[in-house]
Design a protein around this nucleic acid. Structure first.
Length: 424
RNA sequence: GUGGGUGUAGCUCAGUCGGUAGAGCACCGGGUUGUGGCCCCGGUUGCCGCGGGUUCGAGUCCCGUCACUCACCCCA
């Protein structure tokens, strides 16, 4: 065990995995651009108050998961636990609403939450985020979901399901919470200790409880969907209509509550069956009061986040080895051949853009051949004293075993040209 | 924060009743003085997670501790 080890819950993304991450990003970026989204890059550190204001002080994230510290001048800073707050902050700070009434953006980066790590859950984890600020139409809710599911489709993500719900606006939620409390008071005896506590603080969260007796108890509970005002009801109906129009299968899940306080109306989650307990691949929703709550104009917003680590974990097993193989391996024997081979190597790479490798340690031919084979080189150029003297190298096709002479006469340009012809 | 599982070679893992540490893969060398894969032969690799205890003797039993991991919780 080495002396220096990675911080608990953090993760190195090694060569072989990175390619999968890049593919996901490339697919997502393409689709975002097709839908008229622009990229934004924001810092990982913000003033703590931004998150307590936006996420909500009684949420788990703010209560016990944030990496918060005071800097050298005593200011409380926090490594961002999510991206939306920062994006909204940037939107307000740079008065982006004045540039264009509709702001559509995407970003990617690490988030930090100090939870107990487990499969699919890290203390530094990556999200791809997309946000639309300035549109209240259910069309933008459905379009965002369409984007999300299009990305998943292009990546051939297996076993994915979409759950949607509506949390209503401030008014419907207040009426619902009142009724829910009444209900919970009646059944409080059969709730687990956690839920008993949640009853007062955050009654909606009880819907997320996985204790079987609680599940059974709340199956009788009133549904938020029965409490939506006419506006929220119509909004939710249209979102569903649009999804049907896009032929996106979904399930209305009236128990889908999300962990951030700022959500209103539409919420959604993309779930996978193949990832163990941490099965949420992506989640999002509408946040109509958030911009104003953070001191901006009263602009509505919708957004989603994709869990990149989870998505990559899902895709890595089926990813094939796609390490780039060299076209040519130069097997140089002896000091003089090493010198000449070295200059050919770099010239081929720079001037001819040919993927090319050689062994700098001047090993025997057998060892160099093995190395060429392991790297998957298509051709090997063999150059030793004999070849230098006769000014003719040997070019071996590693697939067929066929060997052809390559003239080393003339200046370096001639030689490079001859090599290129031999491996064309 | 709470519970379970696992820590032995670079990797995957055996290790019986407590008796000097093993296999496969990988790596290195040889068979082939300058030709890869396949085959054969040989070799290297270990604070058996760490600390203590029991014992003539501990990878093995006991206690502690740390790490990893899965799950609860929560969420991406």
């Amino acid at each position: 065990m080495s002396r220096y080890t990675i911080v608990k819950g953090f993760k190195d993304i090694l060569p072989g995995e990175v390619e999968v991450w890049q593919r996901i990003e490339n697919v997502a970026w393409d689709i975002f651009e097709d839908f008229g989204f622009s990229q934004i890059r924001i810092p990982v550190l913000e003033k703590t108050e931004l998150f307590t204001r936006s996420i909500g002080t009684s949420t788990d994230i703010v209560e016990k998961e944030m990496y918060t510290f005071t800097d050298r001048k005593g200011e409380s800073l926090t490594l961002r636990p999510e991206a939306t707050a920062s994006i909204v902050r940037a939107y307000i700070e740079h008065k982006l609403y004045a540039r264009d009434p509709v702001f559509k953006c995407y970003t990617m980066g690490p988030m930090f939450r100090r939870e107990r790590p487990q499969r699919g859950r890290y203390r530094q984890f990556y999200q791809i985020n997309a946000e639309v600020i300035g549109l209240n139409s259910p069309k933008s809710d459905s379009e965002l979901i369409l984007i999300l599911m299009t990305i998943m489709k292009h990546l051939s993500v297996p076993g994915i399901f979409l759950h949607i719900n509506s949390l209503g606006c401030k008014e419907c939620r207040a009426r619902f919470k009142g009724r829910l409390r009444e209900f919970l008071d009646q059944v409080s005896g059969s709730l687990c200790p956690d839920c008993f506590r949640r009853r007062e603080q955050n009654p909606l969260r009880i819907f997320d409880c996985k204790v079987p007796t609680c599940q059974e108890t709340i199956s009788e509970a009133p549904s938020i969907l029965d409490f939506l005002c006419s506006g929220c009801h119509a909004h939710f109906e249209e979102v569903q209509e649009n999804l049907k129009g896009f032929k996106i299968p979904f399930e209305v899940n009236n128990r889908l509550v999300r962990g951030l306080d700022y959500y209103t109306r539409t919420t959604f989650e993309a779930i996978t069956t193949e990832l163990g307990a941490q099965n949420a691949l992506a989640g999002g929703g509408r946040y109509n009061g958030l911009v104003q709550a953070l001191g901006g104009p009263d602009q509505p917003g919708v957004g989603f986040a994709i869990g990149l680590d989870r998505l990559a974990a899902l895709l890595i097993p089926q990813a094939k080895e796609n390490k780039k193989k060299p076209r040519l391996f130069i097997a140089a024997l002896g000091a003089q051949a090493q010198r000449e081979g070295f200059s050919w190597l770099e010239t081929l790479r720079i001037d001819r853009k040919i993927r090319c490798e050689m062994d700098f340690e001047d090993h025997g031919l057998k060892t160099q051949m093995k190395r060429a084979d392991r790297l998957g080189a298509s051709y090997v150029l063999i150059v030793g004293d004999r070849e230098l003297e006769e000014r003719v190298a040997v070019c071996r096709n590693m697939m067929t075993g066929e060997q052809k002479p390559v003239s080393l006469k003339g200046n370096i340009d001639d030689i490079i040209e001859n090599i290129c012809l031999a491996i064309a």
